[in-house]
């Protein structure tokens, strides 16, 4: 659906996007992740045909985004950053105008608008003036606009920015739903969003792609995938000695927890599981074991690891 080859964009001396190449296949929900100023919005602006790249090429559905810009624009629904809308129009008026502009035939316009109103949960506010809507509703109007001509590809630039947690959840569900029919490229710096909605993640930093994989694989990629946490009641030196002696264990960190328990973090290589051995050791020594779990590395760790080029924090408090 999207093919990007060596895309570079320079603004007055600053390289915003630097030789980026990636593809997004039909039907994927692809998350575009990166810190602020990484080049996410710039890449999306280029893909949507708002501005051309300095060099390299980008194709959407086989059409070049610069030379066949209008063909591309017919096929994408683009929601820019900060979701700009005309505050003086009513919701249905705005969608009607956008539908006409995007070439939805007059006879189908009404049905199509009703469809997106329903899809985006805008039925109750369809006659309201956009400027008077809450931010969550405005966001949905923006989404409805990007959907109104039933495009193959949706490009959404930070669609959940500035929403409260409930609204974020609603928008996330909506995006997941849309993913069944559309290919979606979504940018965000909210990590749980990507973990929950996307089936592929592209991490971009300082204009360059630093990782591109499924959220699961990216998480696995991190060292520490085999880390286990256990809470054990027993004599501290002997617990430490026994755990260190287990095959496959690289290191053990022990700290006291409440009720005489010890919290042990057991570091083991990725793709290994030392939980059974820990349990057996506890049983053999007659320790009380009240927790035994894998420390799940989140995308947040991957993100921090990749974009900051420093070791991730190994202790995950409260996770």
């Amino acid at each position: 659906m999207i093919e990007v080859q060596d895309l570079t964009k320079r603004y007055a001396g600053v390289t915003a996007v630097d030789g980026v190449s990636f593809t997004v296949n039909r039907g994927e929900i692809c998350g575009f992740l990166g810190p602020n100023g990484a080049g996410k919005s710039t890449t999306m602006k280029i893909l949507s045909g708002f501005m051309p790249a300095t060099s390299g090429e980008a194709k959407v559905a086989g059409h070049d985004v610069f030379t066949e810009s209008e063909e591309v624009r017919k096929r994408i629904g683009y929601m820019p950053e900060n979701n700009p809308l005309y505050p003086d129009m009513r919701v249905t008026e705005y969608l009607g105008y956008r539908a006409a502009l995007k070439g939805v035939p007059r006879t189908k316009r009404k049905a199509r608008i009703d469809e997106v109103l329903q899809l985006c949960g805008l039925g109750d506010v369809s006659r309201r003036i956009i400027g008077q809507l809450s931010k969550g509703y405005k966001q949905r109007v923006g989404l409805a606009d990007s959907l109104v001509h039933d495009p193959d590809l949706l490009i959404l630039d930070e669609p959940t920015i500035g929403l409260d947690p409930n609204q974020i959840r609603q928008v996330r569900h909506l995006i997941k739903d849309l993913g069944k029919r559309h290919t979606i490229l979504i940018s965000t710096h909210i990590l749980p969003e990507v973990e929950m909605t996307c089936n592929r993640v592209i991490i971009i930093n300082k204009g360059k792609i630093v990782a591109s994989d499924t959220p699961e694989n990216l998480t696995k990629m991190l060292e520490g995938g085999g880390t286990v946490r256990a809470e054990i009641r027993g004599d501290r030196p002997s617990v430490e000695r026994a755990l260190r002696g287990l095959p496959g264990v690289k290191d053990v960190a022990i700290e006291p927890a409440n009720d005489d328990f010890l919290r042990a973090t057991i570091y083991a290589p990725p793709r290994s599981d030392v939980r059974v051995r820990v349990f057996e050791a506890a049983a053999a020594n007659r320790w009380t074991l009240r927790e035994l779990s894998r420390v799940r590395q989140t995308l947040e760790d991957v993100f921090a690891f990749i974009t900051m080029k420093e070791a991730p924090v190994k202790e995950e408090e409260g996770k």
């Binding site: 209008e70 624009r73 683009y78 820019p80 995007k102």
Partner: peptide, 14 residues
């Protein structure tokens, strides 16, 4: 100022 130039110019219009 409102940023709507971006939505306008990314619609299929010249």
């Amino acid at each position: 100022r409102m940023g709507t130039l971006e939505t306008l110019m990314t619609a299929p219009v010249s």
